[in-house]
């Protein structure tokens, strides 16, 4: 099926995310306006106006009523999805950019991460979200100071017990969300970790790094389980909710793009078999590096956001659903007996 091109952003995409039902797609970009789209036809519902600069990250609540965004203007904003109104705003003391935001499971808590700039260290703020917005306060429940290299991505672990962060030196860290203590830290990558996405059950996650590799890691033990390599920096990776598959996206850095032609820029989404670590297909389309990827919650379509300012909605063809490795088929037959 032909992909749908969402042309609404004037600058490169930084993050795209489906809501839990999969009917909406949220996108953040280096322009100031995060947007929401219908995922089945690519129609834009509206934008969220209020940020003063690049919007680095966003997250949508489980019931799709609220949206959380964080931007380079040092603001973390809570929005009403249905009317696009700003509900609440946290600002950092020194206007440090907000690099990552995330709702906790149940949407009663959220976190935002500030950048390490101008002598300020990188910090994780855990805030309480009130159901009644009138009671919302700007205080925070916990403030974790990150020593060393800055966190580029942060997520809540299973049942909000832990916080998982990826760092600019390739480190992955696991924190106790209650005490703010560092539980475990590994350095499986040699370069910046650009993206981390959980599996459905939050038992394992996939990383995407500039060191041209992507890893599946156990969320409890931080044991590296699978590795996928590409021949270009990887900006985003996502696990299919339907099949044992993952997808990677990336490409030559924008500054190096002129040294290669578009066909060699590697601006393709690559699909790998999760278990065999083998590439099974590619989807072309973007003419700049891919910055962010997301599977639809039902696994039947996916979206990609690129440096070129486009979001592309792809719907898988019929034969995608029937594709299997011969070993998988024999294995399934044997296990049925």
């Amino acid at each position: 099926m032909r992909p749908i091109l969402l042309h609404g952003h004037t600058r490169s995409l930084t993050k795209i995310k489906y809501n839990s039902d999969g009917d909406l797609l949220f996108s953040a970009s280096k322009d100031k306006s995060p947007s929401v789209w219908y995922s089945h036809n690519g129609e834009r519902l509206g934008t969220f106006e209020g940020h003063g600069g690049t919007v680095w990250d966003l997250d949508v609540s489980y019931d799709s009523n609220r949206l959380l965004t964080g931007g380079a203007d040092g603001a973390c904003i809570l929005w009403n999805v249905s009317n696009g109104k700003e509900l609440f705003r946290w600002t950092t003391e020194t206007q440090n950019a907000v690099r990552a935001v995330a709702f906790a499971e149940g949407d009663r808590k959220a976190l935002y991460v500030t950048d390490k700039t101008m002598g300020q260290s990188c910090e994780i703020f855990i805030v309480e979200i009130s159901e009644n917005i009138a009671q919302q306060t700007s205080g925070h429940l916990k403030r974790i100071v990150v020593q060393g290299d800055r966190a580029t991505v942060a997520l809540w672990g299973k049942l909000n017990k832990t916080i998982l962060t990826g760092h600019s030196d390739g480190t992955i860290s696991l924190w106790n969300a209650e005490t703010g203590k560092l539980l475990k830290s590994i350095k499986p990558h040699t370069k910046l970790v650009q993206d981390i996405q959980f599996s459905k059950d939050r038992e394992f996650f996939i990383t995407a790094s500039k060191d041209q590799s992507s890893l599946i890691i156990d969320a409890t033990t931080l044991e590296v389980m699978k590795q996928y390599t590409a021949d270009c920096p990887i900006n985003s990776a996502s696990i299919s909710p339907l099949f044992p598959q993952i997808m990677l996206g990336g490409g030559q850095d924008a500054m190096n793009v002129t040294t290669t032609s578009a066909r060699q820029g590697k601006f393709e989404v690559r699909f790998f078999h999760l278990v065999f670590e083998e590439e099974i297909g590619r989807v072309k389309g973007h003419f700049g590096p891919i910055n962010t990827l997301a599977f639809h919650p039902n696994g039947k379509s996916f979206a990609s956001g690129g440096e070129d300012g486009f979001v592309r909605l792809h719907f898988f063809d019929e034969d995608y659903f029937s594709f299997k490795f011969p070993e998988e088929l024999t294995f399934e037959m044997n296990s049925d007996e």
Binding site: E105, G106, R108, L159, N160, S199, D201, E203
Partner: peptide, 17 residues
């Protein structure tokens, strides 16, 4: 993983309501 997930069911329901 599925076993662990199922174990956590009550806690999850508490979180989400």
């Amino acid at each position: 993983n599925q076993a662990k997930y199922d174990q956590d069911r009550t806690e999850r329901i508490k979180l989400y309501g």
